[in-house]
Design a protein around this nucleic acid. Structure first.
Lengths: 246, 246
DNA sequence: CGTTAATCGTCACCCTGTGACGTAATCAAG
DNA sequence: CTTGATTACGTCACAGGGTGACGATTAACG
């Protein structure tokens, strides 16, 4: 490392931090990845950035310049950090956008554990999933831009599989316990995946058209799933033309 | 290009072709990608290989040495072709394993077009999907190794999204026409994705345990979907212990 | 034989992701 | 204050995936 590099790095970091603080989400740093600060400062050198900061910077750069044309080099530079450090916080360039999603899996599992046994299987799944998707109004814009990117960039859809897996397993495990079967057997597996499938449909609709709340779409999709997609209950949504030329 | 390279290349190609002909599938070349020969030989230089040949060689090398440790360099060398040429036949290293899957989408669309309007929506989907998965016995081993790779290597699961998309749309389009709605609206979208979801569950079960025919698993999964996963009809499969310690 | 069309090989290049190794910053113990 | 332990960081080198440009090959056509 040469001599004046650190002064410059600090200067860049100050700029980047200002950008983060000016972010409309208002949420502060939060969870760090390399060693997760728990309030009390630990032993060694303090982290020069945070997963949350990198997430916000990436989100901004991706929205401006596109995912593929935004190199990790640029993201790291905007955060005042080296390229190598970025990959210490995230395993891949795409993972930065799934940071928040991974948190939902935990919420999902907790909620499943709290469902009384009296609630029927598919009703329980619907309630839990809808409940895990109640976002505060101030968090919605960020969620929307993130899902917009995920829905439109192929490289991000490719990275989805890994993250969806944990989500599906949360549902499969619950279904397995209810059915008294193994989580890897056919029906629990199918239920977990089908649940995610219809939720993704709901998400896509919501991203594309801001005409309704996300939870409404989720609820509709999950009800349809539990009804076996009976055409009798599948009326076209308000604002949609029945029949159409594609 | 230096002088003696072509003689060497031809020699390597002869070896590779022998390997392909010795393949148990017995199926010959078939569809080429760069310009799809239609029986009559066309204008310029004839292709030095075929997508099918690259597919078989890749499948063998992946099974032997693993996906990540098998470089495109090695595959191309085994086919007697340059690295660059491999990427003229396939857009990515992973795509080589999805070559056959993409063909299923066409079969799917054709079958949907032939379904009489009297068959209820979900019944039609089940029959068409099961019908599109009737494989000849001699093709099953290759299918199984391919699905085994796809199910176990993360890099391949990542590439799945793009190929699944076309499959889902085939189902969504059919559902949309039956419901008189747009294919991008909530229910058709949800039906297409949920259908694929349960089929993937069936495939996974089938790959993991050779205890039953693929079509049986598919039929069971699709019937469960059409029944809204009513627990009354979800008895554990034969050979599976109800309850278990995971 | 010259032209045209299609494929292929070589080369150069960018980007992602990783391992190795030394450095920087903090806390704790002496 | 010094020393050691600990944690994060930067630099460097490298392998591999994927792409564009350009010339060389091979065959059909006229």
């Amino acid at each position: 490392m040469r001599k004046g590099d650190h002064a410059q790095a600090r200067a860049r970091r100050a700029d980047a931090a200002a950008v983060v603080r000016a972010d409309p989400s208002g949420r502060e740093a939060g969870i760090d990845t390399p060693r997760m600060y728990a309030g009390t400062s630990r032993r060694g050198r303090p982290p020069g950035t945070s997963a949350r900061e990198l997430e916000l910077i990436s989100l901004r750069l991706f929205s401006q310049g596109g995912f593929d044309d935004t190199t990790v080099e640029r993201i790291a530079a905007a955060a005042g950090v080296s390229r190598r450090t970025f990959f210490r916080y995230f395993d891949s360039k795409a993972d930065v956008l799934w940071h928040a999603f991974d948190g939902e899996v935990r919420r999902l599992r907790d909620a499943f554990a709290a469902v009384p046994a009296s609630v029927p299987l598919m009703d329980a799944i619907r309630q839990v999933v809808v409940g895990a998707n109640l976002y505060r109004a101030e968090d919605v814009p960020e969620l929307r831009t993130r899902m917009n990117l995920i829905g439109s960039i192929p490289a991000l859809q490719a990275s989805a599989a890994h993250h969806y897996d944990a989500w599906e397993r949360a549902v499969s495990d619950f279904a397995a316990s209810r059915l008294g079967q193994d989580a890897q057997s056919l029906y629990p597996l199918a239920i977990g995946r089908a649940t995610l499938a219809v939720c993704r449909a709901a998400y896509d609709r919501w991203v594309e058209r801001a005409d309704s709340s996300l939870t409404v779409y989720l609820d509709q999709a999950l009800r349809a799933l539990a009804a076996g997609f009976d055409p009798a209950g599948l009326a076209p949504q308000p604002g949609e033309r029945p029949h159409s030329g594609r």
